[in-house]
Design a protein around this nucleic acid. Sequence first.
DNA 1: TAATTTATGGCAGTCGCTGACATGTGACAA
DNA 2: TTGTCACATGTCAGCGACTGCCATAAATTA
Lengths: 208, 208
Amino acid sequence: MDRIGLRERKKQKTRLALIDAALDLFAAQGYEATTVDQIAAAVEVSPRTFFRYFATKEDVALSLPLDGLETLLAELAARPAQEPPFTALGHALRAMVTMLEEGDLADRTRFLKAHEVIDDTPALFAGSVRRMVDSERRLVAEIARREGAEPDDLLSHFVVALFTTVTRIGFEHCGPAGVHDLTALAERLEATLTLAERSLCPGWDRAR
Amino acid sequence: MDRIGLRERKKQKTRLALIDAALDLFAAQGYEATTVDQIAAAVEVSPRTFFRYFATKEDVALSLPLDGLETLLAELAARPAQEPPFTALGHALRAMVTMLEEGDLADRTRFLKAHEVIDDTPALFAGSVRRMVDSERRLVAEIARREGAEPDDLLSHFVVALFTTVTRIGFEHCGPAGVHDLTALAERLEATLTLAERSLCPGWDRAR
DNA sequence: TAATTTATGGCAGTCGCTGACATGTGACAA
DNA sequence: TTGTCACATGTCAGCGACTGCCATAAATTA
């Protein structure tokens, strides 16, 4: 049974409720048109409490992708050390998607809803790019550690930046319809990853 | 002689004055610690006027790099059509730096000051990356046009994204000292460009 | 049940940013 | 030169995001 108490369960519940309410409101009436007060009211929580769960208004939409980074880092740490860095990153990403595909239905729909809202709200898309910059630092640190390089190693930075770029392109919408299910998203990610791998010389991501 | 009138000259003057005052204040007391009111007061202008020149507070620091994009696009348009896209982008970037090196001393110092402030202010750095992603759309459109591809062509998008990534890494600080002069910056950009070119298969950026 | 921790609500206030209206200053023609 | 017009600026009122502070209510632990 769960070791966590009622308190913690309640917190996670309101957290998800805030995310769901926010995503629905964003989708229905637009991001900038909805106020934090509205989101808080929908969950019957004070606006002050909202900011105890999310530092900014955009965080409520970006928290899910941000969680993705944590699992990506975890998957990356699990990859064998002899694997070249870009390959390891690619496999970690694939594992992350698989994890999501095998997970809860509610989680999947929430993730897709978040992705959709982010994708056609410039401000949120900008915010997600912002977060990518932050997460790049952590990924660079991990890759440099794996490769035994200095923390500010240029090649490690290049590898990670290229990877996040490819991932970003993969997440962006293709065509007017957009991507509305996980398999299509996975295929799109696969396409960009293979495009990148085909474009690069063998052994490019390792110091010689 | 100048064809522009007194009115336009005054505007450009206050615009530069706002940028200079803002950069100095940001450098002295930090970005978030300085208010728009302070910047406006330093130039003896109403806060409302500030927002007539710059849409947001971060714009005042990012407007210079943003101007760079325009010249980059202009240089790109001047590159011969038979040149492969990534090569053309690289040469356009080099031309841009050369242009800056041959320009006014005041412009150079201002550019470097802006670069320095952006580089060690996370919020501004994130903002500059966000702008780069925005400008990607225009670059993709131009590259796709050059190559005779559809506007949402994946390869064109990949080429441009890779280019902006390389450029971004080039602009980032190396080591604790940072980059304080244009030649060092140019060298750093050259290093990342050659790293990228060495990593990629010949002909990767053209549809086969 | 009592004591302690911790989540929440309410409130006042700062700051980024905007719309509307009034005023002043350059541009241009008579 | 003068009068008219366009436009840059100042003022003010206001919204919404976000924060610090203190009181209160709920859950945890003894």
